[in-house]
Simulated scan of single mutants.
Amino acid sequence: MSDSNTTVFTNPSSFILLGIPGLEVAHIWISIPFCAMYAIAVLGNFTILLIVRMETSLHAPMYYFLCRLAVIDLVLSTVTLPKMLSIFWFNSREIDFSACFTQLYFIHCFTVIETGILVALAFDRYVAICNPLRYSTILTNRVVAKIGMAVLLRGSLLTLPRPFLETRWPYCRTNVIAHTYCEHIAVVKLACADIRFSSYYGLLVIFLVTGPDVSFITFSYIQILRAIFSLPTKDARLKTFGTCGSHLCVILAFYIPALFSIFTHQYGHNVPLHFHVITANMYLLLPPMLNPIIYGVRTKQIRDRLLHLLTHKGT
């Protein structure tokens, strides 16, 4: 490993992932909760997909969007966790140059797609509560398919230019990445090139994605709350607001770890490196694990169908 730190590289064929710097001796213990989170994410999201497929009453726009969210969470967790666990368990730290940038692209791409699906779910709740009589005519299967395609294309195309350019930069400082996966900032810092374009393009993507998405979700819920408070009884208000509870919890599960990771990178200059790495991992691990739990617990149709499957198998 000392040779990797001192040798000069020019476009190395592979990178070396250190895992969690400073906590190498604890990698096996750290792998236990990480592995458990991954298992819950895979089992939970596949369960959501299976239940929606089997239950014809769930063949509705909200659940189609939920299935897309489950697929995204499976991709995000699978792109990072298996390699991370191989570092922890087998000290398999090498990752191919092209595989590193492929991983980086998938992380950025599906993160953008996920925020788009959260917007789609907010739109679904807005129509269901503010225009319930027109719900079936506004959110037809054709419209749902178009929204899904638009979200997919936006994520795929907006995040493509940056890794496409970055693979052509010379990487001559070192091939050692102080992280558990090919995290963007950790990778581009190794380049012997002007990386300002990458920074500016990253800000542009945030401006084109996060700003409009958060604004639309906020606007949707302002209208939803106005509609809820106009209902005549407290029970009606609570019941209607309860239909939004799952989506609100998923939004918080997605944005809070993301914001926490961003702020620790920007302002936590005195924070130990291993803390930065762990928070970056939580940003990718928590939403895929929590989303199926949130929808499974808070959505009556999914909960009832799951209980029916479990009790039916038990008998």
Results as ranks from 00 to 15, higher is better:
S2Y: 09
V8E: 12
L17V: 01
L18R: 13
G19F: 04
G19C: 03
G19P: 05
G22N: 06
V25T: 14
I30D: 04
F34C: 14
M37E: 09
A39Q: 02
A41Y: 06
F46W: 13
T47P: 00
L49T: 05
R53S: 11
M54G: 01
E55C: 11
T56A: 12
M62F: 14
R68F: 11
V71L: 14
I72C: 14
T80M: 11
K83G: 11
L85T: 08
N91F: 04
I95T: 12
D96L: 05
S98V: 11
S98M: 10
F101T: 03
L104I: 07
T111Y: 11
V112L: 09
D124P: 01
Y126H: 15
N131I: 03
L139K: 06
T140I: 01
N141I: 01
A145S: 13
K146E: 07
L152P: 00
L152C: 11
S156N: 01
L158E: 10
T159Y: 01
R162W: 07
E166Q: 13
T167L: 12
W169C: 08
T174G: 01
V176S: 02
Y181F: 15
K189A: 12
K189Q: 15
A193R: 10
D194V: 07
D194C: 04
S199V: 11
Y200E: 11
Y201W: 14
L204H: 04
L208S: 10
T210N: 12
P212S: 05
V214R: 02
S215H: 09
F216E: 12
F216T: 15
T218M: 10
S220I: 02
I228T: 10
I228D: 04
I228K: 06
T233C: 06
T240P: 01
G245Y: 10
G245W: 09
C249G: 07
V250G: 00
I251D: 03
L252F: 15
L259Q: 08
L259M: 12
S261A: 15
S261I: 00
Q266Y: 08
G268F: 09
G268A: 10
F275D: 04
V277C: 08
T279A: 10
T279R: 07
A280M: 12
A280Q: 13
Y283I: 07
L284A: 09
L284K: 07
L286I: 15
P292T: 08
G296H: 05
T299A: 03
K300F: 07
R303K: 15
D304G: 00
L307M: 14
L310P: 00
T311P: 00
H312K: 14
G314E: 00
T315P: 03
